[in-house]
Every structure is written in C-alpha cells, then in structure tokens.
C-alpha cells in the first residue's frame, strides 16, 4: 500500500533530468558527429565552442577531453546581483529567465529544458529551472573552469538558504484554497519543499472540511437552480 518513495521526484531523479541541459564546451580533441537517440550532436573541432548535453560534457571533462564554459549567470557578479534581489524583495523569488518570443503560429512554444538556459550565451541575470543542480554538478566536476569557484559556491549556498527560507514562510500566507506564487522556483527546490507544503495544505483542508462541504452543498443547490433557469431560457427560444 505504502510506496517507499514520497510523491514527486527524488533529488537524484531531478539531477538526472538536469543532465539533459545544454552547456557550452571548449573541446581539446576532435570528435566526429554523434548520432544519438535524442538527435545528433555537433562534431567537436577544437578550439571551436559547441553546445553539448551536460552528461556528455561532464564525461568529457572527467576524461580531460574538454573544458566547460560555465553559463554567465554562474559568475560571482550575476549571483551577487540575484542574491541582492532575493534579499531585498522578501515577498517573491527572483524571476526566471524570459522566454523567447513565440516563433510562429503553428509551432509549439519552447520551454525549459529545450531552451538553452545554461549555455555560455544564456541570460546572465536570471536563475533557470535547474540552477541549483547544474551549479552543484559543475562546481564538483569542473571547478577549475570557474574563475572563482569558492565564491560561486558560497553564493549558491546563500541563494539556497534565502530561497528555502522564503519557501518555508510561504505557509504563513497559505489558506485552504492553497494558492501560492511559486514563479522562479527551481526543480531541486520543488523537490525539497513539496512534501512540506502539500502536508500543510492537507492539514488545513482537513480543518476546514466541514466548511468546504457546506459550500459544496450550497454550490450544488445554486447550480441546480441555475440549470432550471437555463432550461427556461431554452424553451423561450
């Protein structure tokens, strides 16, 4: 009856999804074009930069066949600006990167992870969905590609603390209807906050069950009356 895992994704699963994000690498060796199930990867031709999925970039980095160019938002300057924004605006998270304009009428709009939000030319002033996972993984494997890995690490820690504290404070503004603005919250933060926030909403709903029941009954009555009214109208026509 009881599943061993809580609802939602576990942190390793989130990290796995994050490995699909494209990052920019500077190859040190030539590599032919690779045909993979998810599409073909560009041929690597040093010293030209190429976008690769994170998992391959980390693999090549570990084998010393490539260097990873960290995205601009992972620079100490951008992170400091974002952290300042977070601490100044206590009532919301820093906004996610802007979506590009819709291509045309008939194509589907792109959204993360199909947007290159972590390549070298990504927006420098916003945290993308997988910011925490990507930052941690890059810092772990490719710390020497950062100019100042220690301060980046420290800033990421600070951001995580500030944002998790905000996510916890969210419960004080909750009501049983459960509407919370969570724009800009990252994947790992959702995984961390999910069980707590849903637990609070469940508890609140349990307390106000009787009121909800009354409201439901009233709504049903009103709807039934409303239906009668519509029927009358139909007949008039």
């Amino acid at each position: 009856m009881a599943l061993p895992l809580p609802p939602g994704l576990t942190p390793p699963e989130i990290a796995f999804l994050c490995e699909m994000e494209l990052v920019t690498v500077i190859p040190r060796q030539k590599l032919e074009r690779l045909e993979l199930l998810g599409g073909s990867l560009p041929p690597l031709n040093p010293p030209h930069r190429a976008p690769l999925p994170l998992w391959l970039a980390l693999l090549l980095k570990r084998q010393r066949r490539a260097n990873i160019l960290p995205p601009l938002w992972l620079s100490p300057h951008s992170l400091t600006a974002i952290l300042d924004h977070e601490t100044e605006h206590g009532d919301g998270f820093s906004p996610p990167p802007r979506l590009p304009p819709l291509p045309s009428q008939n194509t589907l709009p792109f959204s993360p992870p199909f947007l290159p939000s972590s390549t070298a030319d990504a927006a420098p002033d916003a945290l993308p969905y997988h910011w925490l996972e990507l930052g941690e993984m890059l810092l772990e494997t490719a710390a020497d590609d950062f100019e100042d890995p220690d301060s980046v690490r420290k800033l990421l820690r600070g951001l995580r603390e500030v944002r998790m504290a905000k996510l916890r404070q969210v419960v004080e503004t909750l009501d049983a209807a459960g509407g919370v603005n969570m724009n800009g919250v990252g994947g790992m933060e959702v995984a961390e906050g999910r069980t707590f926030v849903t637990g609070v909403i469940d508890g609140l709903r349990k307390i106000v069950t009787s009121r909800e029941q009354q409201k439901k009954d009233r709504d049903r009555e009103e709807r039934e009356n409303g239906d009668d009214y519509d029927d009358d109208e139909m007949e008039m026509q």
């Binding site: 809580p6 576990t10 942190p11 995984a191 069980t195 707590f196 637990g199």
Partner: peptide, 9 residues
C-alpha cells in the same frame, strides 16, 4: 516530511 526531503537533498 520536511526533515526527510531536506535530508534527501
């Protein structure tokens, strides 16, 4: 719940 999810991360 809160403790376990923080611990998982």
């Amino acid at each position: 719940a809160a403790h376990d999810s923080a611990k998982a991360v």
